[in-house]
Simulated scan of single mutants.
Amino acid sequence: MSNKEIISSSNAPQAIGTYSQAVKVGNTVYLSGQIPLIPATMEMIEGGITEQATQVFKNLSAVASAAGGTLNDAAKVNISLTDLGVFAQVNDVMAQFFEQPYPARACVQVAALPRNAMIEVEVILAL
């Protein structure tokens, strides 16, 4: 892929594995999954699902900005939760970061996430 551009932001956690924060191909930006790490310390944010979801969407916002967009450019959002019982709380947090019309979305429950996070979210932007 010769038109692939790597996107990164110091305002979001650095990759903790063999991946980039985001990759832009044409007008599409693929944001890697974010967990609730504080960018400055790379430590998990303290608190429950509301605090974790808020940090995740802040991290995603920073990467979207580095790509030249915002979360309102999202075409698709994929959410992984370790407990679907917190879905309503995540939905409330998401409403603080997105405006209508909302993107397509999937939400699944998973057995575990890196660093024992309760949530991981990945986004595809259409700029």
Rank of each mutant, 00 (worst) to 15 (best):
Q21A: 05
V77H: 01
L37V: 07
T82Q: 12
G48H: 01
A12Q: 05
T82C: 06
E46H: 11
V25L: 04
E43A: 14
K24R: 13
Q100W: 09
I49Q: 10
L113S: 00
G47P: 04
R105V: 14
P101A: 03
L84P: 02
I38Q: 07
L127D: 03
G33C: 12
L127G: 02
V29D: 01
L60Y: 02
M94P: 00
A74D: 02
D92Y: 05
L37D: 03
V110M: 11
L81N: 05
V63G: 00
S80I: 11
T82M: 09
S10A: 14
I38V: 14
T70V: 00
S10F: 12
Y19D: 01
T82I: 15
V93L: 10
Y19Q: 00
V93M: 06
D73W: 05
A67E: 00
N11V: 07
V29S: 12
D92K: 10
I119W: 00
I35R: 10
L60I: 06
A75C: 12
T28W: 04
A117H: 02
R105F: 14
I119P: 00
A95L: 08
P103K: 09
Q34Y: 11
F57V: 04
A112L: 04
I38Y: 02
Q55W: 07
K4C: 05
A75L: 13
Q100H: 13
S8M: 11
P101T: 04
K58F: 09
Y30C: 05
E51L: 00
Q52T: 01
E46N: 14
A106M: 15
K76D: 14
L125K: 06
A67N: 03
V121L: 00
E122Q: 13
V23Q: 11
E120Y: 00
Q34P: 04
Q109S: 09
P103H: 12
Q89I: 11
V77W: 00
V86D: 13
V63E: 03
G47R: 07
A126T: 15
